[in-house]
Design a protein around this nucleic acid. Structure first.
Lengths: 179, 179
DNA sequence: TATTCCGATAGTGAC
DNA sequence: GTCACTATCGGAATGAG
């Protein structure tokens, strides 16, 4: 049943063609969609849109493939994802206040070893309250200290490192995912 | 729920006080009871009765404790168990013929690392047909070639070995249980 | 670290 | 190698024309 390439399919479509039940919003560079199996009370995915020939689907397949390509372009893609994710984070926290009268943290980051094709940045409230959170693997995948979850700030910081160290950080990011 | 010392309790009681649903028969030295969770179509346990002060419960706690004590007494205990077990085997095979018109093998032996206190000799038909046989551990514990099941003839043969080799065989029997 | 189903495995609690 | 309960782990299928 699950389509492991569904995110890529979304990223190649015109945003207008996607139903409101899937698409939350879009920008010139990204889509923000509802996670189909939310692991927290609020859980979105931000995906870079495919923009041929400038930005092809292959290089956007994963964080690893993106980082192995042009570094400047990779930084642009991830920075743009971070900007839209930050906007969604603000919307989530506004909604928290509106619904519950207070707000709590929102995590933004990548999974080091995702199963689904196409780069996707998770934006989810820091509660892990969801009937969809069923397994230890789910829990581990968002825990900030177990190495599976790569916080957006950490990934962005890699671009400020020395070039040789950048490569090692990329490899370390790959290793994180294999834990 | 399970009482890991229930066998010792039985072995200390007067046989007459045990219900027919538990006790199959008894001799001056042993009790033969129905295994509460039979792993084959026929499955009995033969236990040495505690006979203070000649034969105390502590030395009958396990094969290991028995073999570490007086060797002559150990041989007497095990030989007596073997005799009653052989009688039960005959009864089982008579019943096989009566019920089914043919007979098959009956295994007699100890578990190398039993969980329940008090020495008990298993006597069970070689079919392992039972709804109580649920796990691989159950299967392994009776398989004649996996080291868990110590056939009565093997244990009896230890007493014919050289004294120094007897000690090593006892240790080997202990190891079998830890496989 | 897609989900879901199923079966094997592992840990615990019992007194 | 007491049982019974639960949690966890490990594979395989999933779709598709």
């Amino acid at each position: 049943m699950p389509d492991l390439t569904i995110l890529r399919t979304y990223a190649q479509k015109l945003p207008q063609s996607l139903p409101a039940s899937i698409l939350f919003r879009h920008s010139s560079k990204n889509l923000t969609i509802f996670d189909a199996f939310p692991k927290s009370m609020f859980h979105f995915l931000v995906l870079p849109r495919v923009q041929e020939p400038h930005l092809d689907a292959a290089s956007l397949s994963s964080l690893q493939s993106l980082l192995k390509g042009d570094k400047k372009q990779a930084k642009e893609v991830i920075t743009a994802l971070a900007e839209d994710a930050t906007a969604v984070k603000k919307d989530i926290q506004d909604e928290m206040v509106q619904r519950y009268g207070f707000k709590w943290d929102v995590w933004i980051g990548f999974h080091g070893a995702p199963s689904m094709a196409h780069l996707h940045l998770h934006v989810l409230s820091a509660d892990l309250c969801s009937e969809r959170l069923k397994t230890k693997k789910h829990y581990n995948s968002f825990h900030p200290k177990l190495g599976f979850f790569l916080h957006i700030d950490e990934v962005l910081s890699w671009f400020d490192a020395e070039p040789s160290y950048f490569a090692s950080l990329v490899r370390m990011g790959e290793k994180h995912g294999s834990l």
